[in-house]
């Protein structure tokens, strides 16, 4: 009897360890997490407009039905990327998430300034390289050093009234997610450099 008790006690301890391991491993095995769900809206590297949240058709759980959303899954594996959007003069915000859906950076229309935002995402290695060989982008845009090399951006824009929806959706759909960072200062005079962003 005593021995069985000892084994039962050991089982309890092992159970505690299993509990911790399960909780820590759930994010690695989740197949309905935000990143995976976003894959079905379209190719990586582009913004995709999400349908408005309506009863029965919610593109992602717990999205605000008063907001229009666009998402983009990005990768910094090859090069830094430039993300920019021109957005209506209403509340909007953008948040950058890592692969696990944690917000590593966010901003809203007040903190970014009127009309939209323009930012460059880079890993710390790419960041160091850009500092050595400065590009124009570093002076005019927000440059964000990310601790990860892939993640997603969620862009939300307030739709105060359904009549404003087309304008908002057009602005979100025109947002660019994976543009190359504008050329370096030395080659900025080349005519090709100006055409990159389309603005």
């Amino acid at each position: 009897m005593m021995r069985t008790l000892v084994y039962a006690l050991g089982g309890l301890l092992l159970g505690g360890i299993i509990h911790v391991v399960v909780v820590l491993l759930v994010p690695d095995f989740a197949n309905r997490d935000a990143w995976t769900s976003m894959g079905r809206f379209g190719t990586d590297g582009d913004f995709h407009l999400l349908p408005m949240s309506e009863p029965g058709t919610e593109p992602l759980p717990y999205l605000d039905p008063d907001m229009a959303f666009a998402v983009c899954r990005f990768s910094l594996a090859e090069r830094p990327i430039r993300i920019h959007a021109a957005l209506p003069a209403e509340f909007w915000s953008a948040a950058i998430y890592d692969r696990r859906g944690r917000s590593v950076y966010s901003l809203n229309d007040r903190s970014a300034g009127e009309g939209g935002f323009d930012m460059v995402l880079a890993t710390s290695v790419q960041m160091a390289r850009m500092r050595e060989n400065p590009v124009d982008a570093l002076e005019t845009t927000i440059v964000i050093e990310l601790p990860v090399d892939r993640g997603f951006v969620l862009l939300r824009s307030f739709v105060a009234d359904p009549t404003l929806l087309p304008e908002t959706e057009a602005a979100l759909a025109a947002a660019r997610c994976s543009d190359p960072v504008p050329a370096t200062r030395t080659s900025a005079a080349a005519p090709t450099a100006a055409g990159g962003g389309g603005n």
Binding site: A30, D33, A34, Y62, S93, A95, R100, G101
Partner: peptide, 16 residues
């Protein structure tokens, strides 16, 4: 973190 991975919801960023 585990709950968010299971539900798939996207949290609001601190600046939002």
């Amino acid at each position: 973190k585990a709950m968010q991975a299971r539900s798939g919801e996207v949290p609001l960023g601190a600046g939002e």
